[in-house]
Design a protein around this nucleic acid. Sequence first.
RNA 1: GCGGCGGUGGUGGAACGGUAGACACGAUGCCCUCAAAAGGCAUUGUCCCUCGGGACGUGUGGGUUCGAAUCCCACCCGCCGUACCA
Length: 838
Amino acid sequence: MATDRYEPGKIESRWQELWAREGTWEVANATPEERRHPRRGAPKKSYVLEMLPYPSGEPHIGHLKNYALGDAIAHFHRRTGRRVLHPMGYDAFGLPAENHAIRTGVHPRQSTDESIASFQRAFRAWGISIDWTRELATHEPGYYRWTQWIFLKLLERGLAYRKEAAVNWCPFDATVLANEQVIDGRCERCGHEVEIRQLEQWFFRITDYAERLLDDLDGIHWPEHVKAMQRNWIGRSEGAEVSFRCPELNTEYTVFTTRPDTLFGATFFVIAPEHPDVFRLAAGTEHEQDVHRYVNRALTESPEERGAAEKPKTGVPLGRTVTNPVTGEQIPMFVADYVLMEYGTGAVMAVPAHDQRDFEFAKVFDLPIRQVVAPADESVPPPPDQAFVAHSDDERLINSGEFTGMNTVEGRRAIIEWLDRRGIGHASINFRLRDWLISRQRYWGCPIPVVYCERCGMVPVPESDLPVELPDIEDYQPRGRSPLAAAQEWVNTSCPGCAGPARRETDTMDTFVDSSWYFLRYCDAHNDQAPWDPEVLAEWMPVDQYIGGVEHAILHLMYARFFVKALADMGLLSVQEPFSALFTQGMILGPDGQKMSKSSGNVISPGPIVERYGIDAARCYVLFIGPPDQDAAWAETSLKGVHHFLSRLWRLGRDQAGQDAAPGEARRGIAPPDEPSGDGLTLVRKANWAIDKVTGDMAGRFAFNTAIAAIMELVNELYRFPQADPESRRFAIATAASLVFPFAPHLGAEVYEQLTGRRVWEEPWPDADPAMLRTDTFELVCMVNGKLRDRVTAATGADRQELERLAMASKGVQAHVDGHQVAKVIVVPDKLVNIVLA
RNA sequence: GCGGCGGUGGUGGAACGGUAGACACGAUGCCCUCAAAAGGCAUUGUCCCUCGGGACGUGUGGGUUCGAAUCCCACCCGCCGUACCA
């Protein structure tokens, strides 16, 4: 022990080697026997999971925060008596590796595997307590074999299907683009404006689960803003479907409306440019040419342009009318791009008096605006330049025939009933959520396991032939079709049905498919008969605490929920929700307070930080920097502060261990002296206070910043009372080491071992001694009219009269009460007295 | 527009309706040192002061309460998500 300074490098590698050698964080699944006869009093399980990383380059500071957070929770759960599953894997398919391959010719597998290796090194160097035996990567055939298997199950159930859809298309690169590759309506690579093309694509029928995805949000412990985002995304609207008849063509058009109560105010009718009937309607009318011109222009417009909110309303009359079912009036039909084909039925009844968009359109075309809802306060006339959109239930219907006088809620119900009786309408619920497009014309992804046979059509690859392995290719450049299409030997195959010639599907799956079930695979990672054994899954699922960035609030978290529900319906697992609790961590910003990016030159990488200050300091710092769910700017001086704190704790440990007479004598655990007194008592009390505080901060919420602050206070107290007896000091120092372990595991283990000879992770989490949390006296806050005027010492548990007497007698109170009438005295036992003057 | 989250010292941030500013950074002074680094100790919301204290203070304006950073109402500002969703 030559060193006189805290040298994190030495301490950290020593413990990391031990944990790796002993497989300390591995946890075995129960044997079938154990599952049948669970031991009484067996520890509860806890599945702690951080979102799996996408391995690209080196891990960055955001990864450090993510895994430091998860690891603190995992350690806390272990030491509070739970069996903790804390695995790791890699979301290894995806675009960046493929784009890299296009530039350099390096196979994506090679760059991905290199990156995975650097993540593995980092996680070990960071001392994250991972069960490495369950490690997986989504690009391994042993994994994606089961991704394909799940795809086939979804296909069997009708939850995977093909249909033609409008997708983003770059005319220059001659390829379909993923949504995330379209930046401001342009191709991210060549900068050309993206077009919309109709192509046949694979979808997952997530819309079947819209209602359940919405309802089940109520039962999970997720941040409110994430639930809100999902609710918005699902976008449930209650209303009605109403049929409008076109007498000239003898056709019917159904609309969805949330305001059936305003049906009497529907004075025209609008369909989307993409509506299948648009040309048929216009055929033979004087507007036919105009309609063709308008529709063609609308279809070539970029989604960006078309969606611009401030854009003036445009459209063209179709030269036809439909019948308003309640008034019997013929109302004119239009085609206009403010109506979207993707939502509702692609047609709307326009009520210009009560819908702002319809109002604007009516102004452009000089169409009648008929008010059918009166404001609740009739003295206030509706504004002349905009639609009157009713917000409360107090408004009443006017100009609405037999429904006049009803409030809008009654009117809605009554009109729906009226329509229903005549078979021309009914109550209906609409969702904004659309089916999940999973096809990607990409190489580096999971092949879709189907073939196309001239005779049998689309044929699923039999389970026994899985995985459909991704072949190696030379040219990754997409040319309007998947690069896989060029792999002739792979593409040309035989039909599993008739053995005739067949071609493989050359699209691959969206990488979000890979990550929608990986948390299931960890539970039974080595099963080669099935993706998992449902009984093994039942042992671990659901994930008790999921941790990740808020950027996945909608996509990944929605898709994973959908997968779990669909798989549960197939009887493959028995939970309805994958993640019972979610924590979304905030970003670490650059020192300038901006998002870290190479172009801003404000990137802090973990490597040099760890080298200079040690991983314990880096981990503590990212947790201490502020509430972990908030963004925080990197500040190296604060990191030094945390390093300083850890050094102080290390020195306390070393000095104390040095004072203990013989090494053997040091190994007697950390029991405090039976009856501490003086400074020793102060330290023992402070240690118990810290136990209580840290435990509450960890268990109740994720207030790691205040938990670490409490340990800092304990360390400060130890420096303040150097004369306390050795037993009390040892107890207090070992307690600090024990409490700091989830945040700074190496230092915690080191100091704890020096003082006790024991392994801190094998020790139960300390319990605060209630007797030590109480004090005999306390500082009584004395207030006059709610203002602090004095503080006096009072006995704990003193009665109200006594406290009132003490307060009245205090100097500060005397000075302010003097000569005034006391109207009232508020006494809060063990806390304060407030004297209210008349 | 709609939905969500915020606004507290020079800075990051603490604070079950009960002592605003824990903890940390920074700053100032002192100690240790030949010196530096490292380390230790003290002070540090603003203003006034006769050095005992006093006044003010959590985006703004109201309200509830003995007592409000915290609860309620109205507003201002910022961030995030989403948007011609009928």
